[in-house]
């Protein structure tokens, strides 16, 4: 709504970390003095079902308490959602919307699959990066790394610092290191049009 608010919509399947990513990013930007909101869309909770997550980031307090219908950024964790009408990946996108897709395909192919003319499409093989870096194909953290490369919401340095602090409570050093490498790789390996 307010021009200064960045609205991000996440599309994934249950188990891929769309909810975690939406909330992680919201909390990570606080260290930069931003205001934020991160929330998932709740429905039947089951692994593999399409889920959406939402993140709002702003320099001013955020007052909106509704879903994100016209996102600035659309992040897709699972490319099989691209063809799903129910998942609604391109819904509400404008000519300025930026798409970040976890896929092996090229941005040009994705553009065709989504049936969009405007906007910008970036791709990265986040599942492969995750598999290689920490042994599980969970793409959410590398996708945040990819976002840091194209969006002015968080720097790579702040993202890594925040990841280390927040993961320390739950994970081993090996898992943390793997995630840091994955984030850095996705930041660099992003393919743009």
């Amino acid at each position: 709504m307010a021009a200064a608010t960045t609205e991000i919509r996440w599309h994934g399947r249950g188990g891929q970390g769309a909810k975690t990513a939406a909330i992680f990013l919201a909390e990570a930007v606080l260290d930069q003095g931003k205001h934020s909101q991160g929330f998932p869309e709740y429905g039947p909770e089951r692994r593999g079902a399409p889920v959406r997550g939402f993140t709002r980031i702003s320099d001013a307090p955020i007052r909106l308490h509704c879903s994100i219908a016209e996102p600035d950024y659309v992040i897709v964790l699972d490319p099989t959602l691209l063809d799903s009408k129910a998942a609604g990946v391109p819904d509400g996108a404008s000519d300025d919307t930026v798409f970040l897709i976890n896929t092996v395909e090229t941005p040009a192919n994705i553009r065709k699959r989504l049936g969009i003319k405007g906007g910008k499409v970036h791709t990265v093989d986040a599942s492969l990066i995750a598999q290689e870096c920490f042994g599980r194909p969970i793409p959410n953290m590398p996708m945040i790394g990819a976002l840091a490369a194209v969006a002015d919401v968080i720097t790579l340095e702040n993202l890594v610092a925040s990841l280390v602090v927040r993961f320390k409570k739950k994970f081993s050093q090996a898992v943390i290191d793997g995630n840091v490498t994955a984030v850095e790789r996705a930041y660099k390996e992003l393919v743009s049009e």
């Binding site: 606080l30 205001h35 934020s36 909101q37 991160g38 998932p40 307090p61 308490h65």
Partner: peptide, 12 residues
């Protein structure tokens, strides 16, 4: 406070 809209939304 509103279920999900507030209860499950991370806010600063």
């Amino acid at each position: 406070y509103d279920g999900f809209i507030i209860s499950h939304t991370s806010e600063s």
